[in-house]
Amino acid sequence: MKKKGLLGAGICVLAAWVSLVNAQELEGTLKKVADSGSITVGHRDGGIPFSYYDDKQQPVGYAMDLCGKVVDAVKAKLGKPDLKVEYVPVTGTTRIPLLANGTIDMECGTTTNNAERQRQVAFSTTYFVAGVRIMAKKADHITSLQDLKGKTIVTPAGTTSVRLLNEANNKDDLGMRILSAKDNAEALLTVETGRAVAYVFDDVSLAGVIASSRSPEIWEIVGDALSVEPYGIMLRRNDAQFKALADETLGALYASGEINAIYDKWFLQPIPPRGILMNLPMSEQLKKVVAAPTDSADPQVYQ
């Protein structure tokens, strides 16, 4: 009797051990999520159409849909369909500390993947490729940076646009006065009130700003892209298991063509809260990424 019990226990332990090895030991974020029974998604509050609040104060958007797929994959992998999903709004300043201290497990917004930032965080496969371009009033007939010589322009502080504009100023002696804005809303006010003649930033953000402005018809986005800005889901560094899961999920969406439906939903159809239309067909650069997924921070890869 006693012997049988011991044998049974032994088999149980062995079975548990085998299943554990098969399931691959969890580590990093996946282990944390499995232990705590909840996963936390960081989102932005005004990143139209990537990650923003709709009329019910729920975070929605293109990036939120993609992150939702990653969350589904986490549920499947951990075998926990009732995993709790929490949403935490983050800003440009809070996203790093909150990711580092474990408050959020991933950030879904408009964060550009670049080499400098990769020293601090990791990025999933690229899900959008933006280009830095110029937003100006149609009446001003601006077509390139040359037309902005000696004029005042505005751009968000600390972005790659600042570097591009300074380089252009130094190289071509353009003498543009560069105002720095805190966010999209302030930048829009600055060009609307005539304090600056142009707003230079990622084209997709510009499209969002125009769509949400009071009179969208007076604005246009002009000029060649001054640079490319690959966006990705921001993850913790050295968290290979979770990053692999996120990359696989996005890769599967790209391979199956499901990405096209999600893209169209946010960029070609009216979106909440006011039914605005981004009207931004998928760029050649993003089509290339969908064909051959990459998480590279090197702009050359996307040209």
Binding site: I96, E116, R117, A157, G158, S180, A181, K182
Partner: peptide
């Protein structure tokens, strides 16, 4: 910094955006 004056806090924010070393 809310009206675009690049004073000390705005400079710190610009550095944090550029390098992520918040």
């Amino acid at each position: 910094l809310a009206i675009g004056l690049v004073e000390l806090t705005a400079s710190a924010r610009a550095m944090q955006e550029g390098t992520f070393q918040v």
